[in-house]
């Protein structure tokens, strides 16, 4: 069921048709310190150095072989950077970043227990890459064409559908999601995260592999929308009624 959406923080969104689903596997960490952005920039695929208060951006942490550790959404909150990641991947992400905090001014706090997570999707023409907070509810308009909502526990956010509806929406738009397309099995380009891979930001872990794939136009596999009967079931990452998402060899 589609419901008209009114964004209290941005009334111009009135009239867009949006659906909201609870995202139970969200994880929120709070990153504080002068070196947070340079630290994240040095370890992930996107250029985040220019992120300013009120903006949000996605970036992907990768291994030296460019395999995905997690894709995160960063919200610049002024005093700190909020990092929304995928809870099942948190241990791996934490193990990746923690030993690399050397002399830098970076402190990380776990705020997951204080917050609930939702995705909002549908017919939306919001400006992407910005977020707003109203009464404990932060809405980030992400580049993937959907919104990520982080609500302080106790703040009511109406979720009229479950994630299955979101996955059906994702299939039609070829939007990758952690645990489905975004997994440690694949590199960032195969997962459909090319928008996260900045072409000229300089060195980060996995950069040599990704840059070589891009320059040679050879990335092995790619995320595609497929008819269910077109591919092996093992290649399907998100299954729909007739069409699915699959990471297939190109």
């Amino acid at each position: 069921m589609l419901t008209p959406h009114v964004d209290a923080a941005n009334p111009s969104h009135e009239g867009n048709w949006m659906q909201t689903a609870r995202y139970l596997e969200g994880h929120l960490s709070v990153w504080r310190g002068e070196d947070v952005l340079t630290f994240i920039d040095g370890l992930s695929t996107n250029r985040v150095l220019d992120l300013r208060k009120g903006e949000c951006q996605q970036t992907t942490f990768t291994t030296t072989t460019a395999k995905v550790i997690d894709r995160v959404a960063l919200f610049h909150m002024g005093d700190f950077v909020a990092c929304v990641s995928h809870a099942p991947f948190w241990d791996a992400l934490h193990a990746h970043v923690s030993p690399r905090i050397l002399g830098q001014d970076v402190s990380i706090f776990d705020a997951s227990a204080n917050n609930e997570f939702y995705v909002r999707f549908g017919d939306d023409d919001s400006t992407r890459g910005v977020h707003s907070t109203n009464d404990g509810v932060t809405i980030g308009h992400l580049e993937g064409g959907y919104d990520l909502i982080v609500a302080t526990v106790g703040k009511h956010v109406e979720s009229e559908v479950n994630l299955d509806s979101f996955h059906a929406w994702r299939i039609e738009r070829c939007v990758p999601w952690p645990g489905y397309e975004i997994t440690a099995k694949h590199h960032a380009l195969a997962c459909g995260l090319s928008e996260d891979v900045h072409p000229s930001k300089g060195c980060y872990i996995g950069q040599e592999v990704l840059t070589r794939m891009i320059s040679r136009n050879k990335q092995g596999r790619t995320l595609s929308i497929v008819a269910n009967e077109e591919v092996q079931p093992s290649e399907i990452t998100t299954k729909g009624a007739s069409r699915s998402l699959a990471i297939i060899r190109v």
Binding site: S29, D79, H94, D110, A111, N115
Partner: peptide
């Protein structure tokens, strides 16, 4: 997410 998010969040072991 609000200001309390930061103040009440537990530090992560580094």
């Amino acid at each position: 997410m609000d200001c309390g998010t930061c103040e009440t969040a537990g530090p992560i072991q580094v």
